[in-house]
């Protein structure tokens, strides 16, 4: 759909695009956070969105998920124009997201955090609560079964009855990711899923992300850990100063002097590639 001026490869080389944005701009009090970001995210692949701090990555995820409105530009989920739609409508179309700082539903238990996630539930209607109790019970049973399976997979089953606010930082990361998986999204946006977690957990989370891909999801993740990006991401989008600087495999991007200058060189010199 789009062309990124200096891209070395397009998602067409992998598969069709499922999420795309074109010329997205966003400014805050005159400061341009996004300045024409344009890219396609290939379907059923893991795509990394990388770039220096302040490049506009989180702003872009906010716009793609509907949490923030862009000043101009368009976003598409599949063939549907979702530009500036409300976030819950985009979520119902199959796009889930996590947040840079984990945002658990603290007053709910770990299990309840997952049970909230199915997008449309019969039990959320007053009519059904009072007039179709059996439907509710059946639905609740199915949801609890699925939620417990996911919690077991993510190592949170034993914590199912704890309030989410009682979890550690790493556990909150896992909870947020597992909550998104519970919603069975087609596209999952992960905002720095490895940030602030220990190396062993990075290993596990990377495995979970690969599992998502096996299950047919498309993943777009903001990530600074280039070791992880290199190993699990099929496609990389580099954002700098609010614009798409380049796209392609990380190995290709390492040869791009502009990318090295804008981001990779900075990361390498800071010694955070591993």
């Amino acid at each position: 759909m789009t062309s990124t001026g200096q891209s070395m490869s397009s998602p067409d080389a992998f598969s069709e695009s499922i999420l795309s944005c074109e010329n997205i701009t966003k400014s805050f009090l005159g400061v341009n956070a996004l300045n024409g970001a344009t890219f396609d995210v290939p379907k059923n692949k893991i795509t990394a969105l990388i770039g220096p701090n302040g490049a506009g990555k989180t702003t872009l995820v906010n716009i793609l998920s509907g949490a923030m409105k862009s000043d101009s530009g368009t976003t598409h989920l599949g063939s549907v124009d979702v530009t500036n739609l409300e976030s819950y409508k985009i979520a119902r179309m199959g796009l889930m997201r996590t947040f840079q700082l984990s945002r658990e539903l603290g007053g709910l238990t770990v299990l309840e955090n997952l049970l909230v996630a199915p997008k449309v539930q019969a039990g959320e209607s007053l009519f059904n609560i009072f007039l179709r109790p059996r439907l509710l019970q059946r639905e609740e049973r199915q949801n609890i079964e699925r939620a417990t399976e996911i919690l077991a997979t993510y190592g949170l089953y034993e914590l199912r009855d704890n309030r989410a606010r009682e979890l550690s930082g790493g556990q909150k990361k896992l909870l947020e990711i597992s909550r998104g998986v519970m919603a069975a999204p087609t596209v999952f946006l992960l905002d720095e899923p490895m940030a602030g977690v220990n190396p062993a957990l990075i290993d596990r989370i990377a495995g979970y992300i690969l599992d998502m891909k096996r299950q047919g999801m498309t993943v777009l993740m903001i990530e600074h850990n280039l070791n992880v990006v290199e190993k699990i991401c099929d496609f990389v989008i580099v954002l700098a100063e609010g614009k798409t600087l380049a796209t392609g495999r990380l190995s290709e991007l390492r040869a791009n002097p502009e990318v090295v200058q804008a981001y990779l060189g900075e990361v390498i010199s800071a010694g955070t590639t591993n």
Binding site: A67, E86, Y88, M96, R103, L105, L108, E124, R179
Partner: peptide
Amino acid sequence: RTLRAIRDDPTVASALG
């Protein structure tokens, strides 16, 4: 449960559809 989710964080609840 959904009402309590909105109480805890309406942005997250909205992101969950």
